[in-house]
């Protein structure tokens, strides 16, 4: 391996226990800038625990996380966001009853003083609506009025809204947890296109998916987890969905 470049994010000997249950038994994983890394594995392999640690939602029980070579500790999702790591969770990506604009700007609302005054800082609703539209059209997603509650959008559109929020934070690394689960063919294609677009922009994507075809279609590297350990870590060159599926089942790369 010619790993002369410092990885964007690097995990060494990371473990996670929930009481007596050891979900992660020492994970070493490098995420390089600009790659689309797929995390695959059966249920209970440790994917969700790993995602929560990467996202700052749970602290690791032991081990070290380095960001661009520097040791970091994420005490909250806000910490990870501030360091440029955004996570789009499968079920919790968006707040259904809030509007498109409210979702995109959740946690990073724009404010401005009234009549050009510096204070008090009030919500800049017009500015946020404008920027929400711009962000979504940048992702080539056409949605209704930005005041529309997100619960009226399709699954793919919701992913786009969640992604827009990550882009608002200017996240360098975006973790997508099962983004195509429960989506139709058309919608899946749209989300995969979004991932390719992020890749083209030079952003780092960590994709968690059960769909081997989706993984092969967009990722540059794949890490297979089994029983809380990383058993395979390789490029996706020359791998098809069948072979990847076999790897997940057996934990062996042949």
């Amino acid at each position: 391996m010619t790993a002369a470049v410092t990885p964007f994010l690097s995990l060494s000997s990371v473990t996670k226990s929930y009481g007596a249950v050891e979900a992660l038994k020492g994970i070493d994983l490098d995420v390089h800038e600009g790659e689309v890394l797929a995390l695959v594995g059966d249920n209970g392999a440790g994917k969700s625990s790993l995602v929560k640690i990467l996202a700052g939602a749970h602290p690791p029980s032991a081990g070290e996380i380095r960001l661009r070579g520097e040791a970091v500790r994420f005490a909250s999702p806000g910490d990870a966001l501030a360091k440029g790591i955004a996570t789009i969770y499968q079920d919790l990506a968006v707040a259904p009853r809030l509007s498109i604009t409210e979702n995109i700007f959740l946690g990073s609302e724009l404010t401005r003083g009234p009549f050009g005054l510096p204070v008090p800082r009030l919500l800049d609703k017009a500015g946020m609506a404008r920027e929400a539209k711009a962000l979504l059209s940048r992702l080539s997603v056409n949605v209704a009025h930005p005041d529309t509650p997100v619960e009226r959008l399709s699954g793919g559109q919701r992913q786009a809204v969640a992604l827009s929020r990550a882009l608002r934070w200017d996240a360098r690394m975006i973790i997508m947890d099962e983004p195509t689960a429960a989506l139709g063919v058309q919608e899946t294609r749209m989300v995969l296109d979004l991932i390719r677009r992020l890749h083209d922009e030079g952003r780092t994507v960590v994709l968690i998916s059960h769909n081997m075809a989706d993984v092969c279609a967009v990722s540059t590297r794949v890490a297979v987890l089994k029983g809380g350990r990383k058993v395979i870590d390789r490029t996706t060159d020359g791998i098809d969905a069948d072979r990847l599926g076999h790897m997940v089942m057996t934990g062996r790369d042949h």
Partner: peptide, 12 residues
């Protein structure tokens, strides 16, 4: 409206 989603978005 969505406590967990808000928390994950950095809202305290």
């Amino acid at each position: 409206e969505a406590e967990e989603a808000a928390r994950l978005a950095g809202v305290r």
